[in-house]
Design a protein around this nucleic acid. Structure first.
Lengths: 200, 200
DNA sequence: AAACCGATTGACTGGTCAGTCAGCCGACGG
DNA sequence: CCGTCGGCTGACTGACCAGTCAATCGGTTT
């Protein structure tokens, strides 16, 4: 018989509740009891599954970031122009936000852009993303698709920075966030970075 | 007689100490006593000059950000190409970092990129910067210097996002930060955004 | 039916700090 | 020489909350 199998996966339930609460209140302002309440679970159970509040956030981040890393490396492995590869990366990130804005908000606001606190812990993983993007740029330069006078690391930071800033704009309602805006954004970041603002 | 005039401006001393401590430990991890100790001042004096720990950070941010706002609007007022105007903005931000990396670290890490906590308070000021940059782009479009199919707000976010990401890279030692790198960065952000990565 | 065991519960504790406040000190004026 | 006034001091308190733990529950095994 399925001897274990708790009726619902409480661990998952806690993680999902944490996404909602972190997104709503921010990590520092959420008490562990808020997570437990939101999950409809006893306070102590959070500590049964996670060794600390911090570990809950770490788990959320790592789960999703590894998907991103895979996606970037995957795009690179396809055969397409460097520009198309960057497009695929942008599309993946934008779609991630579109699919689960709360989770992406938590990841960006609490980890990626909080390099002083949590970001510190995850700097190696974050760095890996920049490096994979830089690799795409470097390859583009080798095959002559990109100019060579821009350092790939530098280009990668600009590209990722631009996307993250857009997500932040959506998150904090600085710019409109309709389905059409998402689609347009994918093309526009790539166009901006590859073609530039000046007319060709 | 100069009946007031404390020998040294203790208020300033507290603010400067706060920059160092916030930069070193981050806002959340610094106790008010850390600031007082660093400033060589009694705990209570911090509350004599500021109504809360938060107000100290707010003051640091507003002081600096108003300079940035002025600088952006000032560049726009000059008569130069849109590209030169963007160059001036990039140069100002990079020089700000170069001149006082600790202060810029605090502002970016604790406010600008912490839109959930402190950023919230300052969102209007932050937004103003984006809008001023967008204005430069819009003017560039009107005079035909920039393509018209990219929304100015969007371009502004990308541009600012790219710069901020670079600063973050320096702050967290993801990319080298020598004097030469700073100079190069000013040109490269502008080149990337205006000309794009693809060869012309 | 008894022992077992992991999942679950929530009251409790220990430590941490932000912010308060009662009073000290030294300059200046009367 | 005394009063007073603002800058300044730092011990103290009240609130808050992460993390602990002893107890309970419900299903499985022997």
């Amino acid at each position: 018989m399925a001897s274990k199998a708790p009726p619902i996966d409480k661990r998952r339930q806690i993680l999902d509740a944490a996404i909602r609460v972190f997104a709503r209140q921010g990590f520092h302002a959420t008490r562990v009891s808020d997570i437990a309440d939101e999950a409809g679970v006893a306070y102590g159970l959070v500590y049964h599954y996670f060794k600390s509040k911090e570990e809950v956030l770490n788990e959320l981040f790592s789960e999703r970031w590894s998907l991103l890393l895979t996606a970037i490396e995957e795009s690179d492995r396809q055969d397409g122009s460097p520009r198309e590869k960057l497009g695929a990366v942008a599309a993946f990130i934008v779609d991630s936000y579109r699919h689960d804005p709360e989770l992406m908000k938590v990841i960006i606001v609490e980890v990626t852009r909080a390099a002083n606190s949590f970001g510190r812990t995850h700097l190696p993983e974050i760095r890996r993303a920049y490096e994979s993007i830089a690799k795409i740029v470097a390859e583009g330069q080798e095959q002559g698709a990109f100019r060579r006078d821009v350092d790939p690391t530098f280009a990668s930071m600009s590209f990722y920075g631009a996307i993250e800033q857009l997500l932040s704009g959506w998150i904090f309602e600085l710019i409109p966030a309709s389905a059409a805006d998402f689609e347009q954004a994918k093309d526009l970041v790539v166009a901006t970075i590859c073609d530039g603002l000046e007319p060709r």
